[in-house]
Design a protein around this nucleic acid. Sequence first.
DNA 1: TGGAATCTGTGATTTTTTTCACAAATACGG
DNA 2: CCGTATTTGTGAAAAAAATCACAGATTCCA
Lengths: 212, 212
Amino acid sequence: MPEKKKIPKSAVSRLSLYLREVTRLEKGGKGKISSTELGDYTDLTDAQVRKDLSYFGQFGTSGAGYDIPSLKEAIRKILGKDKIWPIVLVGAGNIGSALLRYPGFKNQGFVIKEAFDADRKKVGKRCGDVVVKDIKNISDIKKNGSIRIAIIAVPENSAQDVANTLVKVGIRSILNFAPVVLRVNSGVTVSNIDLSTELENFSFILSSQEAP
Amino acid sequence: MPEKKKIPKSAVSRLSLYLREVTRLEKGGKGKISSTELGDYTDLTDAQVRKDLSYFGQFGTSGAGYDIPSLKEAIRKILGKDKIWPIVLVGAGNIGSALLRYPGFKNQGFVIKEAFDADRKKVGKRCGDVVVKDIKNISDIKKNGSIRIAIIAVPENSAQDVANTLVKVGIRSILNFAPVVLRVNSGVTVSNIDLSTELENFSFILSSQEAP
DNA sequence: TGGAATCTGTGATTTTTTTCACAAATACGG
DNA sequence: CCGTATTTGTGAAAAAAATCACAGATTCCA
Ligand SMILES: NC(=O)c1ccc[n+]([C@@H]2O[C@H](COP(=O)([O-])OP(=O)(O)OC[C@H]3O[C@@H](n4cnc5c(N)ncnc54)[C@H](O)[C@@H]3O)[C@@H](O)[C@H]2O)c1
Ligand SMILES: NC(=O)c1ccc[n+]([C@@H]2O[C@H](COP(=O)([O-])OP(=O)(O)OC[C@H]3O[C@@H](n4cnc5c(N)ncnc54)[C@H](O)[C@@H]3O)[C@@H](O)[C@H]2O)c1
């Protein structure tokens, strides 16, 4: 009976942070790092760092800490960053075109291969490395290898429709900028970027501080 | 001795969701709602909805549920949305200008009143409702009422400097798009929008599903 | 080579958050 | 106005996550 340890979802997100820091430190020529130091860089405790890494294996050496290049490679592998991930973006408006023009993703192995929009004025335009296509041709992505990650950057009233379409053509993970709760089959992962919620956390905190 | 109940941070974020839904439902003319139904709309359990609301008071009626208009007003007040929140944005590049052009914030009481950039080519340009100013004049915001919320949309290598400056001129809450861990005094709240981390969660999940 | 210093990995503990489950309140049909 | 059906609010229980704390491994230097 294979023992399954349960990994907190937040541990995976912190792994991203660790990867970012060790990547930076490796470029700076640093060779090894302790959990305490990595915790300092990420604003976490040393115990949290060690515990997070321990969910995935043993990467350190007692008395010496972690070898930066091998820790980096290990985390890259865990996060699937030893592969290139093609992405489709739907909605080439304000946010969508900012994402298309951002070179940072490509360097990280996340390549926006296709972009779709419903507006004739947008269709045919080049943005970043891609030419925006008509949403009607969305099933083109089936041809283009196997894209499983999508970004939704359309207005809230079309987001659910777009999500349904995307799931139909094989998408398994959706990064959603529209302020709506998307309904998808279990098996499809949705992550919401909700800037209003973030700002409302601020206004809540600031209001509470003011009151008492 | 005033009893202080401890409110989970995530409960505040969910409050945002509830507010969004009841606002939408009120527009649709709906008058009351049960915790079960609100949970359906937000993909949460009825118990979670009731518990969250109970941190802040008693808003419902046994047997009847919640009156939508009054629940909406109650949540608005809790989140500080009965006021207008002026915001300063730093970095009018891809992301920054997408935010400036987005009309959604204003409707929500979050008004970007000032935008700053270090690039002469950006300075002086109108974007959305504001004219981009030189970052050197950042202390202008002290004159402009009391802005306490900032959005950082500059490259990672300038983000910490910008944060330091912002805190100096009175900012207490920072929404940060740069992929760096910002160091700020306790008392200043930072929220990070880290799209790479979100995508890495996807690549982690997709990789794990593939392997076994 | 030895002994003090460092640092990991992890079981145990504590804290935090979610879920359960039910008494009490209210609604409503007849 | 009564009895049944709903639905809330909340302690208690369970689950999840973070923190503690330490045995044991390794390093380093005298
Ligand atoms: N821009 C921001 O700063 C910002 C901030 C927070 C949230 N959002 C949310 O992000 C989403 C996009 O915002 P935006 O400012 O980029 O909007 P936008 O109007 O600039 O762009 C939306 C794009 O989606 C396209 N579109 C509409 N329906 C479509 C469909 N069915 N299929 C394909 N394309 C379709 C439109 O043609 C348009 O180009 C919205 O849901 C918005 O609420 C944006
Ligand atoms: N664009 C995206 O899709 C995207 C995605 C993920 C993360 N990010 C992050 O968001 C940030 C902004 O990205 P972007 O694509 O908008 O970059 P950008 O280069 O288009 O814009 C950055 C802007 O900041 C200005 N700037 C630089 N230093 C400054 C300073 N010290 N003071 C004031 N202004 C300064 C620049 O002049 C420029 O206008 C970056 O940290 C990036 O890593 C962007």
